[in-house]
Design a protein around this nucleic acid. Structure first.
Lengths: 103, 103
DNA sequence: ACTAAAGTTAAGTACCTACTTGACTATTGG
DNA sequence: CCAATAGTCAAGTAGGTACTTAACTTTAGT
């Protein structure tokens, strides 16, 4: 959880994720549009991979990366729980206020 | 977006959010269960507040903090889009494979 | 007025993160 | 075999982050 959110808390890595949504890509393809060195991109990919958001296999001399949606879903669920719990709390509070009627 | 994810990418701050889901709380109440100094908690609250996840008002000498669900919803939507786009992509790929039938 | 409570500010420190460059290791096509 | 391609490893650096303690400012109770 911590790892996943830390991984997504970087705009370069979110760019990589958005690129990978369109389909698998090699390290070089991922690095091309980014204004940074290839090793830097590699480090970002490692972060994404150890967070479980991306997987990659190397065949020959090219490593191909693809998305792993399970990680995204996990965070999404955590967020959804917090938000809906809070909204239910607000609803309950609203009902109370209407019942007691302070206005 | 960047700010929101960076804010949530810290377990202490996620603890604060989870506490605030149960309802508003003062800085002291929020700090009490955490094994760190009060100024540290203040800094975390400032991060959450400038990310738009928390709002607070000071009345007398006590500052009361409460959640702002809009920020959570924004991230949730971004995640949902990436994930569902990817899953649709996978489905389309699956259909193609079944159509072409390589097995 | 005096003290305690609740918070705020400022400054400093230890660690972490996002890069860099340069050297190196495979693969692959000619 | 030779050179170019694709990626990897290692080390170093600049800036950011999560704290700390100490000093200070309000407000509230007696």
């Amino acid at each position: 959880m911590d790892q996943v959110l830390k991984a997504l808390a970087d705009s370069t890595r979110r760019d990589l994720v958005e690129r990978l949504v369109a389909g698998p890509a090699s390290v070089g393809e991922l690095a091309a549009p980014l204004a940074m060195s290839l090793p830097a991109v590699m480090q970002h990919l490692q972060v994404l991979e150890s967070a479980g958001l991306v997987r990659s296999e190397k065949v020959g001399r090219v490593r191909t990366c693809h998305l792993e949606p399970a990680g995204l879903r996990m965070v999404e669920e955590w967020l959804g729980h917090q938000r809906t719990d809070w909204e239910h709390h607000l609803d309950a509070l609203g009902d109370l206020l209407q019942e007691g009627d302070l206005s």
